[in-house]
């Protein structure tokens, strides 16, 4: 028995680790506390969520230069910042793609963009992994709670990627209307097609 117990403990530990070491944890769910990050903006400065003390929250978008869906949504992401930055929810765009896989998403290529909001490079891809981002664009609304930020919405921008004029449901704007009113979003999680994040090759 004395020999069996450590063995059992070991088996149990191995069993546990096989769960915890599963690749790509599911990332954040609505209601989770979002970890802050420190990523390099295209102007060379480091940006963290904590930097902007007046922000009531953020609209964090994992996006990139090259994905046709990211390109289709670029002007709509700019519009989200124009609408919600004055209301305390600026956009923070993060490019998680490995430039070794997609040269068009290199830091230099990112610098061709001129946005009124930060466009950060997630060089280690750790932020995308922590958030559970899988595609571009993939959007997260964060709401301030004291010094923390809580995930309030995850998902799509609207229901028609091809043509903004044909959009019937503006998912993120509907969620933002409720979040700004201090209420939880009725539809707080939506799905969208996008380009898979180009992870570093192991």
């Amino acid at each position: 028995m004395q020999k069996v117990l450590p063995l059992l403990t070991l088996c149990f530990a191995l069993l546990l680790s096989s769960f915890t070491l599963r690749p790509t944890a599911d990332g954040y769910q609505v209601g989770d506390k979002a970890a802050d990050f420190k990523l390099k903006n295209i102007d060379g400065k480091m940006v963290s969520l904590a930097d902007n003390k007046t922000a009531k929250g953020y609209i964090v978008v994992f996006t990139c230069n090259t994905c046709p869906y990211a390109q289709a949504y670029e002007s709509r992401i700019i519009a989200l910042n124009q609408k919600y930055a004055p209301q305390g929810y600026p956009v923070v765009a993060i490019n998680p793609n490995d430039p070794a896989v997609v040269p068009g998403d290199s830091y230099a290529a990112m610098q061709t963009k001129k946005y009124a909001f930060p466009y950060l490079q997630d060089e280690s891809q750790q932020v995308a992994k922590t958030y559970g981002a899988t595609r571009t664009p993939h959007l997260y609304v964060l709401t301030r709670r004291g010094n923390d930020f809580v995930v309030s919405y995850i998902g799509a921008i609207d229901d028609n990627s091809e043509d903004a004029k044909l959009v019937k449901t503006k998912y993120v704007e509907n969620a933002m209307a409720e979040i700004l009113a201090g209420k939880p979003a009725t539809t707080n999680s939506t799905k969208a097609i996008g380009c898979s994040i180009k992870w570093k090759r192991a």
Binding site: R135, L166, T169, Y171, A192, G194, C195, S196, I197
Partner: peptide, 20 residues
């Protein structure tokens, strides 16, 4: 189908929408 939110979950609840 213009809105993936309508049907993605019916293929697989875990599919977040990345391709392939």
């Amino acid at each position: 189908e213009p809105d993936p939110n309508d049907w993605l979950g019916k293929i697989d609840a875990k599919w977040s929408g990345a391709l392939p």
